[in-house]
Design a protein around this nucleic acid. Sequence first.
DNA 1: GTCTATAGGCAGATAGAC
DNA 2: GTCTATCTGCCTATAGAC
Lengths: 198, 198
Amino acid sequence: MVPRTLRTDIDRPTVILDVAARLVQRRGFNALSYADIAAEVGITKASLHYHFAGKADLGQALIVRYTQRFGAALQQIDDQYPDAYSRLQAYARIYELVLREGRFCLCGMLAAEYETLSQPMRDAVVAFFNLNHAWLTGVLEGGRIDGTLEYPPPGADVAQMVMSGLEGALLVARPFGDVGRFVASTHGLIEGLRKRTT
Amino acid sequence: MVPRTLRTDIDRPTVILDVAARLVQRRGFNALSYADIAAEVGITKASLHYHFAGKADLGQALIVRYTQRFGAALQQIDDQYPDAYSRLQAYARIYELVLREGRFCLCGMLAAEYETLSQPMRDAVVAFFNLNHAWLTGVLEGGRIDGTLEYPPPGADVAQMVMSGLEGALLVARPFGDVGRFVASTHGLIEGLRKRTT
DNA sequence: GTCTATAGGCAGATAGAC
DNA sequence: GTCTATCTGCCTATAGAC
């Protein structure tokens, strides 16, 4: 069934996830309450429970959607940039945009709170990092082939270094409210991998 | 007044801070409750309030002590290791030991929860990072002088990169319960700064 | 789908006896 | 310093009407 008019509003679950994602990325999952979300969405707590039975279910949906979108962004980078170095730059830009919204990475936040999460949420967080790590490893190995990157250790280790470096750069820059601090950390990280065309 | 016998127990506030620090570094400040601490220390919640009037006061004391101890460890590194490269290695080892205890950096955890903290706690967290950044900047500039390090950008930027890189390596390695992942991230980070004696 | 009303629990915090 | 007892408030969650 197609709606008769172009809808500018979005469906409830999407709006709920939008609001919840923003709150978690700014304040953490343990500081998130159904009351806060309900107030911002403009419904009651009881209605929230209709869409997401429990807080852990909501949390899981949050991570799954975040990971899907992240995967799509990585796919877009692959399509848009031909060389590995440009892909790394674009990857770092994703993180920078998150910071500019005043947010932390959803899964970075949940990694900090990991021990308090339900098992499904834990598994989803790990899956997010696995996706990032696998993609980065591919890009890094591609960089050896296309000649835009140069690094001594295994690609998988460097992938871990890049991913951790970006998460950490977000984490530390946020209390300072300073994007410059993020750029300072990450620029050297990626330039250090660029092939020197001496 | 000197106690008549050698005391093997420690004073209450210290034990409270020990227990609270472990809980915060594993589960986060927002997941910390007076009930949990009291149960583990073996006193009541009311007694806890005698030593630390409010949760924010306890939190502040936690950060101050952590920062003091960290500063002492940095001083010890300066005394023990003559060259900049060895100092960086020793610095990374501090973080690795934290991970081996199953913990996250106290201030890394609080950086994630930053928006929910009281102003005094926020200021204390920032002070911790400032201490680390200043010390690292000094070490890095020393490495140019003693010839053990080599890096293109300003020392302050590299300091930010190293600090963020270690915090991020802790953050991401913990959900995997894998110290190897931490080492993979940080080894390349520090070796990349070492002067090539070609 | 959304509401009102409410249950049941745990949070941080305080009063006052010992 | 430590206790018992209690307060107030917020939390997640549910029942049931509309």
